[in-house]
């Protein structure tokens, strides 16, 4: 530790900042992306998205042909019956099974962890002392979390499509509720489904992000977001709530199934998008408002 520190008085800028400092250059998207990329959590989450289709494929290969009928979701359950009819259907099935819970958890993980994890490590105060402007810190973190969430959906979709096509071939998309959809159009519908799922996940993203700002416990933010999502889903099952259900953030979660019918049903997709965008905006606005005025004591 015996060091001779070099001498010389550093120059300063007019606003008092050290030379070379620009608020707009602090904590860039790429820096934050790299910071998160090296985390086990990130790698595991993305890795599982790749592994899930493999597990599904193995399950289909090992499993017998017997099934317990079309219990539960009526004709939509044919989606699982048709899963092995082609790569498109396999990918659709992979999306279908992950939409209600796995993606929710993954998105909540990426967003709930943003600020809360930095706070729990103690690194948040050093970033703020750099200083990274608070709005910028939040904005970059949100952008990176959104990117990783999108990456997760794409990883799942890509792997499932690749595996499914290699194993089951490139065949028309069968939905069980409409006619066969030719592969080209089927791929577009698959992408649209993934797109809507992503938009719908904005609700979870916004909620987890807000909770992440409000608490210093990353698990609390992730768990809280998942919990609230599930509560909303449960309330949505209570038809007695009537019109009020339209305002539940999860009410349109399954609207993507409308993309499998012919012609496609965009009504609920659009309403779902409106709902998701509204919730996302509200949650994020609250998060920014709260964080920009918060005393960081952790």
């Amino acid at each position: 530790m015996s060091v001779e520190l070099k001498t010389g008085r550093a120059a300063a800028q007019a606003d008092g900042a050290a030379e070379g400092y620009r608020a707009g250059r602090t904590l860039t998207y790429a820096t934050e992306f790299a910071r998160q990329w090296r985390r086990k959590r990130t790698q595991l989450a993305l890795g599982f998205m790749v592994v899930l289709p493999v597990i599904l494929l193995i399950a289909f290969e090992l499993g017998g042909s017997d099934d317990d009928g079309r219990s539960g979701r009526g004709q939509f359950s044919q989606l699982s019956d048709a899963a092995i009819s082609g790569g498109l259907n396999f990918a659709m099935f992979a999306l279908f099974v992950s939409a209600s819970f796995l993606l929710v958890v993954v998105v909540a993980l990426f967003h709930g962890d943003t600020v809360a994890a930095e706070a729990s490590w103690g690194s948040l105060r050093y970033l703020l002392a750099v200083p990274v402007p608070r709005a910028r810190l939040l904005g970059v973190k949100l952008a990176v979390a959104l990117s990783y969430s999108a990456l997760a959906v794409l990883a799942l979709l890509g792997t499932a499509l690749l595996l499914g096509t290699v194993r089951y071939g490139w065949h028309p998309l069968q939905s069980g509720i409409a006619a066969e959809i030719p592969p080209g159009e089927g791929l577009l519908r698959l992408l649209a489904t993934a797109g809507f799922l992503g938009i719908n996940m904005l609700v979870v993203a916004g909620l987890a992000f807000l909770l992440s700002v409000l608490t210093d416990a990353p698990l609390g933010a992730v768990g809280g977001a998942v919990l609230l999502y599930i509560v909303s889903s449960i309330l949505d099952q209570i038809t007695a709530l009537g019109e009020l259900r339209n305002f539940l953030p999860t009410h349109f979660a399954q609207a993507y199934l409308g993309l499998l019918t012919t012609p496609m049903q965009f009504d609920d997709i659009i309403k779902g998008t409106i709902s998701a965008v509204c919730y996302f905006t509200a949650f994020c606005a609250l998060a920014f408002y709260r964080f920009s005025r918060k005393d960081v004591v952790s």
Partner: peptide
């Protein structure tokens, strides 16, 4: 002030 650029000299 919080986030003041001069903090970069600390």
């Amino acid at each position: 002030a919080p986030g003041a650029p001069v903090l970069s000299r600390i």
